[in-house]
Amino acid sequence: MFSFLRRHRELLIVGALLLWPLISYLSTGHRGRAPNFIDRTVLLLSAPVQSVLTSIIDGVEHLGSGYIALRGSHEESLECRTRLGEAHAELNSLKEAQAENARLKAMLGYVEDTVDQEIVARVIGLNPSPQFQSIRINRGEDDGVRAGMPVVTAEGVVGQVVRAVGGSADVMLLTDAASRIGGVIQRNRVRATVVGTGDGHELSVELVPREDDVVDGDVMVTSGSDGIFPRGVRIGVVRAPERPSVGMFMKGKLEPSVEFSRVEEVLVIPVTMGLPSAVLKGTTP
């Protein structure tokens, strides 16, 4: 027995190293495994390297762009002041609307779940494999980030946390082929499912009945029906909706609001399955 093992040692080692991950892949498919000790160690080692490299590259970029920016700063500052004035006016009217909204909600007895403070995170890397569209951020379990939490920017939805360890987390982008999100057309509340195409910069609009009123340029926001993303966050703009000669549903593309490859900072919303993490903590046995 031992002589057989010794004689075929190399064959057995190579066979085991090939078959173990292959069987693991075929049995778990695309669900992926929970991070084990080795995964956590790898991420613990790589996240600081990525953070340092990102800081160095950003520093060099800012140094160069800072000088260029100085040259037109006076005109820019005047423009900024004008815009700030406009923004103040808009903010004021929004505050009025918010106060009115709160009064109306109180009259209707509507109770809204309080959401914890969003977690601001910096993007420190992009996944090196093009088959899985994901980014890595510099906030993880230690900062309250958990798998399943939605991730957004001021422009719109970015994706969903798929794995969080100590000081970093991976976020599956909307463009990933496995991504599905409930959407609604802002203009007329027509519901749709927004699906990642896997090509890195376009989304697909699915499950919209062909007779529904959807036109090129319609803005799609989150519907909240998926239980993951809060309602009303911008997803993108519908492009070239088509109604095929057969079938119940129309087809369409969606141009995302966020340019995923250029995202620098993101906000992680501390809710999982639509519930604030504070609520979940309370229900945890």
């Binding site: 991950p21 292959l22 695309h30 992926g32 495994r33 090196p128 899985f132 994901s134």
Partner: peptide, 15 residues
């Protein structure tokens, strides 16, 4: 390592 970097390690890349 590549598998871990994808965010959803499945065993595909070691294989």
């Amino acid at each position: 390592l590549l598998d871990v970097f994808t965010g959803r390690p499945t065993g595909l890349y070691p294989a």
